[in-house]
């Protein structure tokens, strides 16, 4: 986009335009933030409305209107920029995209907001985690620091987890995301042993409400608390409940770059949930994208690069 043609020529006009852009951005972020917050709380609060929501038919990805974005401005929030670039990528055939993530370890403060927002977004049960943050203490007093390394699925270009699956229930999609077909997966957990990053976890069927008392006068008894757990997850764009012996219980599970959000024009939850803008996302095949710019930096690295798996998650040091 040609920003020069939009630049106002006089100082008062520039100030007015800047103030306008700030107001629009703030309005957008307020709405956006409220939306995220509401989405986290709604399942727990919705009560009786939930079953109706949970049973609503799945809509085709294209049928949903993508969120409105404010006009592009200079120096706008990187989240907005990444959302624009996301739309640009979605307009291309899937095979021409290469979804990638960059995590700036200098910006990560170890708040674990990405871990928690991921759990809330994907309704993850106990024992299943898509994006833990590893913590290390470096140096000795008085020169001590801590390093925080979030570890999502690396969405490897050459994944070692897919080849071992005995029933072809997991594969690399055209856009590079490694997918698991929960309905096909037999739960042998071979892929868990084969992933060099321990990025896959096993959904053994635990629930947060497993030992919650029934019918107690407590504020939240089992029946009430379990509503959260009955909320459908949307891994890989399908709806998944928590019925015993039904997928995803008994399956291997892992981070999927929130594909259900991507196809609706939204960034992965860990990106929008990061309080320090330490996680970036986009199409690495788009040379004008922020992600391509960051991947090209010389202070970048990937985990266990020597294995040749070619992760699509990059770290900035």
């Amino acid at each position: 986009m040609n920003k020069q043609s939009k630049d106002p020529t006089t100082a008062p006009e520039r100030e007015a335009a800047s103030a306008d852009a700030t107001r629009v951005r703030r309005e957008f972020l307020a709405k956006f933030g409220s939306g995220v917050f509401a989405s986290l709380l709604a399942p727990a609060l919705a009560g009786g409305a939930l079953p109706a929501l949970a049973q609503s038919p799945r809509r085709a990805p294209g049928a949903l209107k993508m969120p409105d974005l404010p006009p592009e401005t200079e120096g706008e929030d990187v989240v907005l920029r990444m959302m624009r670039e996301l739309r640009r990528a979605l307009a291309k055939p899937a095979a021409e995209r290469r979804w990638s993530m960059v995590i700036d370890l200098r910006k990560c403060v170890g708040c674990h907001a990405c871990t928690i927002s991921c759990i809330a977004e994907n309704k993850l049960p106990p024992g299943v985690v898509y994006r833990p943050v590893m913590e290390e203490e470096l140096g000795k007093f008085p020169h001590v620091s801590r390093r925080f390394t979030p570890r999502p699925c690396m969405q490897c270009e050459k994944p070692s987890c897919t080849a071992v699956c005995p029933v072809s229930a997991t594969w690399k999609r055209a856009d590079g995301i490694v997918e698991i077909d929960y309905d096909q997966c037999i739960g042998c957990r071979y892929c868990l042993t084969a992933c060099p990053y321990s990025a896959r976890t096993f959904d053994a069927g635990h629930n947060y409400t497993d030992r919650t008392p029934e019918n107690t006068p407590a504020l939240v008894d089992r029946a009430r608390a379990a509503r959260y757990e009955q909320t459908k997850a949307h891994d890989y764009g399908k709806e998944w409940g928590r019925e015993p012996d039904a997928s995803p219980i008994g399956n291997a599970r892992k981070c999927h770059f929130c594909v259900h959000r991507l196809e609706k024009g939204m960034l992965p939850e860990c990106v929008t949930g990061c309080i320090g803008h330490a996680t970036f996302f986009g199409d690495a095949n788009d040379p004008d994208s922020l992600i391509a710019e960051l991947i090209g930096r010389p202070n970048g690295m990937r985990l266990k690069e020597e294995l040749g798996t070619q992760p699509k998650v990059h770290y900035l040091l």
Binding site: A163, V164, V167, Q184, I186, G187, C188, F202, D245, G250
Partner: peptide, 26 residues
Amino acid sequence: MDLGHMDRVWRMVLRTNFGSVMGWMA
């Protein structure tokens, strides 16, 4: 009994991935 989905064991034979050693094993 160790499988996460015992009812899907038949897939080991009818939906085999012969690129996997475990597929061959079935």
